[in-house]
């Protein structure tokens, strides 16, 4: 049974990889261009006018945030669009009629989200090397935060895809929730520089912990408790995974 599930998983994962690389002009190139522009405009043009933050120049400070931003948006975008188009074309039925367990199906789609999120993250990291020399303070932390954040946002995208009934539904959450949370999550500034009220409010934003922990992995500086960030990511991973399984078991959005 384990072997059968493994084959099912690799089949879904393979399909997702083929999709990501078949439409690479949609999946891999645009985020790299967007983030490169951020590096040029904020890092180079504006950043050169600003002083250091915690001992690092502005470009080095924003680099981990920009990499994390690309991981978040691309992990989410991949699962939500792939799962919704699978529903839209009704080829989700290929999986539903098969004996593939729901947890295998979830992991298969997550593998796609993580592949795209981490691929784009790697490409953005390579682009950042054109502008700065990025230190790596703590490799395990960096990898762990990247993997868990990608996992969590791939799950969130999948849940969005499960509920989505029309194309509008797959852009509402990214536009009105994820983008504001990411931009206000400390990509471009340290929350320690904010007035008390905004600093306290920012601590309710989970993205602050993801970016904070990831930045710690690179630079060794942080404005949050990285262990709390790690714990929160683990908790989100488990809770969102269970929610996804529950929705699929109920047949939400996929069975009548």
């Amino acid at each position: 049974m384990m072997r059968s599930n493994w084959i099912s998983f690799t089949s879904i994962a393979r399909k997702e990889m083929i999709r990501i690389f078949r439409i690479w002009l949609q999946t891999l190139v645009p985020p790299v261009i967007t983030i490169s522009l951020y590096f040029i405009i904020f890092g180079s043009f504006i950043g050169s006018q600003l002083g250091d933050i915690d001992g690092y120049d502005y470009m080095a400070f924003i680099a981990p945030g920009l990499i994390m931003m690309s991981i978040i948006t691309n992990s989410y975008a991949n699962t939500v669009s792939s799962f919704f188009s699978t529903k839209f074309q009704r080829n989700i039925e290929e999986l539903l009629v098969s004996p593939t367990p729901n947890w295998v199906m979830v992991l298969g789609y997550i593998s796609g989200g993580m592949t795209r999120g981490l691929c784009v993250g790697m490409l953005v990291s390579l682009v950042s090397l054109l502008f700065i020399r990025l230190p790596l303070f703590n490799v395990p932390f960096t990898i762990l935060f990247a993997l868990l954040t990608s996992f969590v946002f791939s799950l969130a995208g999948l849940i969005n895809g499960i509920f989505a009934k029309k194309f509008d539904d797959i852009s509402v959450i990214p536009t009105f929730v994820i983008t504001p949370l990411t931009y206000l999550g400390g990509v471009f500034y340290s929350i320690s520089l904010l007035p008390d009220f905004w600093r306290t409010l920012s601590k309710a934003n989970p993205v602050v912990y993801m970016i904070g922990g990831f930045r710690y992995g690179f630079l060794g500086i942080t404005d949050i408790n990285v262990w709390a960030g790690l714990g929160m990511l683990l908790l989100f991973s488990v809770v969102l995974f269970l929610i996804t399984l529950y929705l699929l078991k109920k047949g939400t959005g996929v069975r009548c």
Binding site: S4, I7, S8, S11, K15, T86, R90, E94
Partner: peptide
């Protein structure tokens, strides 16, 4: 099924081999 329910962007053989994979049949 009555109506086509495969991904129209995928290649013919990929559609069939993927389905086999979902049933645990080695590649």
């Amino acid at each position: 099924p009555q109506e086509a329910n495969f991904s129209i962007f995928e290649k013919v053989q990929d559609i069939v081999t993927q389905q086999a994979g979902y049933y645990g049949i080695p590649r």
